[in-house]
Computed example of a mutant assay.
Amino acid sequence: MSTPPPATTSRFNEEAASWDSNPFVQAATTMAHKTYLSRLPPPETLSQYNILDLGCGTGLLTFLLAPSVRSVTAVDVSEGMIDVLNTKLNALPPPHNVLGVHALLSDPDDPILSFDPVTGDSFPQRRFDLVVSHLVLHHIPSLPPVFANIFGLLKEGGRVMVTDFEDFGPEARRFHPESKMEGVERHGIKRDEIRRILEEAGFKDVKVETAFEMEKAVETTPGSGETGGDLMTFPFLVCEGTK
């Protein structure tokens, strides 16, 4: 996974404690979860899946998916985010099928991924049925190495499924207030570009489609810090492929 700028990691460490209190983040994660479930196998098959949630944050998507699957390995480069995830996990009665991992992944064979969240056993070169990631891609400097790594993390026949807002032109920049542009590497993802990256990584049956749309309060004047009730509609893409 391409290394995020230090400022990005610092920002998310600082925001981790209050992350779950953001209504837009909560709503967007709920919509992503619904999108994934609508495209995944029926419950009897899905219940056997071992999933990797890449850039999991505080585990909002992780904990929505966990009841439907065998296990979720939740990975984030922000130690603060993983600390919040683990606090929530420890408050739940055992048994657990979630494992929080603080790591920057660059190697599919990284031993930090070898642990089974359900049994605790270690399996070298552990592979996953599905890799998901939500609202992460726009923070990553270079996407081709990320999808090459994801391809290596999947079993044969495994799938990648990621969601992020779409770069639909200059106005997509307004998704973030100017005060939070540090660590934003792109203003959404472009359909043709992400399709090409997935195909070049080796994925087949690639699909890039509009998953849902959301209204978001944006700055009336860039840099003002004031929204004044201004709302913009942002389309979110779901990008998927099969190994």
Rank of each mutant, 00 (worst) to 15 (best):
P42G: 12
L64E: 13
E240P: 00
D20H: 07
S18Q: 13
E79T: 10
V84I: 15
G225T: 10
R39F: 10
R70A: 06
F203Y: 14
I197L: 13
R70V: 06
F234H: 00
G100P: 03
D109G: 12
T119H: 01
D121I: 03
L61A: 09
A91R: 10
G157M: 11
F212G: 04
G157C: 08
V69N: 05
V77H: 02
V184W: 03
V208Y: 02
S68Y: 15
L54M: 04
M181S: 13
M181R: 15
T210N: 08
A91D: 15
P42D: 14
W19L: 10
Q48P: 00
A32P: 04
V101L: 07
M161Q: 10
S106H: 13
P177G: 15
E178W: 12
D116N: 09
Q48R: 14
L85V: 07
R186G: 03
G225F: 05
H139S: 07
A217L: 14
G183A: 07
K34E: 15
K155H: 08
A16D: 12
F168S: 05
E156L: 09
L153H: 03
S106P: 02
K155A: 07
G183S: 06
L143G: 01
P5S: 12
D167I: 00
R127L: 11
T35L: 11
V25L: 12
T9Q: 14
T9W: 09
P95A: 10
K180N: 10
